[in-house]
């Protein structure tokens, strides 16, 4: 009886510790608007929300490695989830995606806005976009190149401020238009020292067949189907707050936020 009691107690204790296990989130320590070490990014806010809903304390693994290697950290069990991930066969994506965005044209408010890759004015403007991104493909497919300046995706992910390099270049008049991933464009343009216009692309994909619109999911390890379902349920229950956080960070969205 004594041993039965003991094992029951131990079982309860183990259950207790499992329930209280930290929710380990892989996040970039210095990559606003997504995340930073101080917890200022929308991913930080969403992770806290998720942690509260699941009854687990959020613990970060700071991870700034580019090129999808965050998947290695997931696979090695060093973290349980990644807050922002495109659809991928290397992970389990939580559904539905919590936002859909696209690339956006950022121009100065006193200039006329650009709306499409096929806008003839693009051939005359000084354009900045990210190295290796879908806009770079779209421009190359149109033979637009004479005025394009490619910014290293590496630098964009680098130390503080660098990620805003393209928006800064527009604000300073170094380039006429920047074509940037929506969340980055929206966040930095709204906080720029001069008024800027953010015009999200209208096309789902551009006419040369290169996808420009993407869904962003929370992602977990391939064998964590149960955790994925818990996350899906939690995000559904807190949908209004998720939308509020995204709005607070000025993220241009192509999906419809929940009704207030």
């Amino acid at each position: 009886m004594c041993s039965a009691f003991l094992s029951a107690t131990m079982g309860l204790a183990m259950l207790g510790s499992a329930a209280a296990a930290d929710l380990r989130v892989c996040a970039d320590p210095d990559n606003l608007p997504f995340s930073n070490r101080a917890g200022d990014g929308f991913e930080n806010h969403l992770a806290e929300l998720l942690g509260a809903e699941l009854g687990r304390t959020v613990d970060y693994l700071w991870w700034s490695e580019p090129q999808g290697s965050v998947v290695d950290a997931l696979d090695e069990g060093r973290c349980d989830l990644v807050m922002s991930m495109l659809r991928s066969t290397a992970v389990l994506n939580a559904y539905p995606p919590y936002y859909r965005s696209t690339f956006a044209f950022v121009t100065r408010a006193d200039a006329s806005p650009v709306r499409s890759y096929d806008d003839p004015v693009l051939r005359e403007l000084a354009i900045g976009t990210g190295f290796g991104t879908p806009p770079a493909s779209a421009l190359a497919a149109r033979g637009i190149g004479t005025t394009v300046r490619l910014y290293s995706a590496f630098v964009e992910s680098g130390p503080a401020g660098d990620r805003s390099a393209l928006v800064d270049a527009v604000a300073k008049g170094e380039i006429d238009v920047a074509i940037i991933w929506g969340p980055v464009a929206g966040f930095f343009a709204a906080r720029a020292p001069v008024p800027l216009t953010v015009t999200p692309l209208r096309e789902l994909e551009d006419s040369s067949g290169i996808a420009q619109v993407f869904d962003v999911h929370v992602a977990v390890r391939l064998d964590e189907g149960e955790l994925r379902m818990e996350i899906e349920d939690a995000l559904l229950r807190r949908r209004a707050e998720v939308d509020a956080i995204l709005a607070e960070f000025d993220i241009p969205r192509l999906d419809r936020p929940a009704a207030p």
């Binding site: 580019p66 965050v70 922002s84 991930m85």
Partner: peptide, 9 residues
């Protein structure tokens, strides 16, 4: 995803 959540070809 290049940087997590950021599209890259």
């Amino acid at each position: 995803s290049y940087i997590a959540g950021t599209p890259f070809v």
